[in-house]
Simulated assay, not measured.
Amino acid sequence: MQVTINGIDTRYVLSNEGGGPWLTFIHQLAGDLSVWDQQAGYFRNDFTVLRYDLRGHGETALSLGAFSIEQLADDLAELLHKLGAPSTHVVGLSIGGMVAQQFAVDHASLVDSLTVVGAPAFTPEDARPTFGQRAASVRENGTENIVEATLDRWLTADFRKRHPEVVEQIRDTILRTPPEGFARAAEAIRDFDVREKLRSVAKPTLVVAGKHDTGTPNAASRLIADTVPGALFETLDAAHLSPIECSTQFTALLATFLRSSV
Rank of each mutant, 00 (worst) to 15 (best):
Q133Y: 06
Y52R: 08
E125I: 04
R134P: 00
S200Q: 11
S87R: 07
A225W: 01
F47L: 09
Q38G: 13
A219G: 13
P217S: 05
R139P: 01
A100Y: 03
D112T: 04
V49N: 03
V208T: 14
G18D: 09
E245Q: 13
G92L: 11
T214W: 02
E78M: 14
E17L: 08
L198Q: 06
T251M: 06
P129H: 05
L241N: 09
V207N: 07
S200P: 00
L155N: 04
L241F: 15
L232I: 02
K203H: 01
I189A: 06
T251H: 03
F131P: 01
N145Y: 05
P243G: 10
V201N: 00
L241D: 10
L54E: 07
G142W: 03
T251Q: 02
H212G: 02
A135L: 09
L254F: 07
V262P: 04
S137Q: 12
V13H: 14
P164D: 11
L29H: 01
D53K: 14
T123A: 02
L232A: 09
E187K: 06
L223H: 06
A220R: 09
V207R: 10
D32P: 00
V117R: 15
H107F: 15
T177C: 12
S63M: 13
S247N: 12
A30L: 12
G19M: 13
A121Q: 09
G56S: 08
F47G: 00
Q102G: 02
E165L: 13
Q169A: 15
T10V: 11
G58P: 01
V91F: 12
E125C: 01
P86W: 15
L206I: 08
D193T: 02
G181S: 11
W36S: 02
I244N: 00
V167Y: 11
G132T: 02
L155K: 01
A66W: 01
L114W: 05
L33Q: 13
A252H: 05
S94H: 09
T173E: 08
A149H: 10
L198N: 01
R55E: 09
E70A: 14
R162I: 07
Y52C: 11
G181Q: 06
Y52A: 06
P229F: 12
V35P: 00
S260N: 14
D226I: 05
Q101F: 05
H27D: 07
A239T: 03
T177A: 14
A100S: 13
L110N: 04
L54K: 00
